[in-house]
Amino acid sequence: MAVNAKGEEITSIWTPANIVTCVRILFIPLFMIASEFAFSGFAAGGNHFGITAGAWAVAAFVLYFVLSATDKIDGDLARKRGEVTDFGKFLDPIADKLLVFSALLILLEHGLVNVWFVFIILFREFLVSALRMVASANGEVIAADNLGKAKTAVTMVSLCAYLLGIALEFLALPGMVQATSIVLTVAWATMVAAVVLTVVSGAQYFWNARHVIFRV
Rank of each mutant, 00 (worst) to 15 (best):
I73W: 14
A153E: 04
E83L: 04
G46R: 09
A60H: 14
L164Y: 07
G46I: 01
L164S: 03
G82A: 12
F49P: 00
R124T: 06
F37R: 12
W56I: 04
S129R: 14
K72L: 09
V62K: 11
S102R: 08
F123G: 02
S136K: 15
L98S: 04
V66S: 00
F126G: 06
L105M: 13
L147T: 15
E36R: 14
F117K: 05
A95E: 08
V62P: 09
G75A: 07
L122H: 04
I51M: 14
R132D: 02
E83I: 12
A130H: 02
A53T: 02
A34Q: 05
T85K: 08
N47C: 04
G82N: 09
A161I: 09
V62E: 11
D76C: 05
F123R: 12
L77T: 15
Y162C: 01
L108E: 04
K72W: 14
L67T: 11
I106V: 15
F126K: 10
S102W: 09
G41F: 10
G54R: 08
N114M: 07
G75V: 10
S129V: 06
S129P: 01
A60T: 07
C160A: 11
F49A: 06
V141N: 13
F65N: 03
L163I: 00
A78T: 13
A143V: 08
A95R: 11
A53Q: 02
L127E: 03
D74R: 12
V113R: 11
G165L: 07
F49M: 08
Y64I: 08
G111N: 10
F61K: 10
A153Y: 05
L63V: 00
D71L: 03
F37D: 01
I51W: 13
G41T: 04
A34F: 11
A34D: 02
A143F: 11
I142H: 11
D71M: 02
G50N: 12
R132H: 12
A167F: 08
F37Q: 06
N138G: 03
I51S: 09
D145N: 14
F117C: 01
T85V: 10
K149H: 10
F37I: 02
E109F: 13
G41H: 14
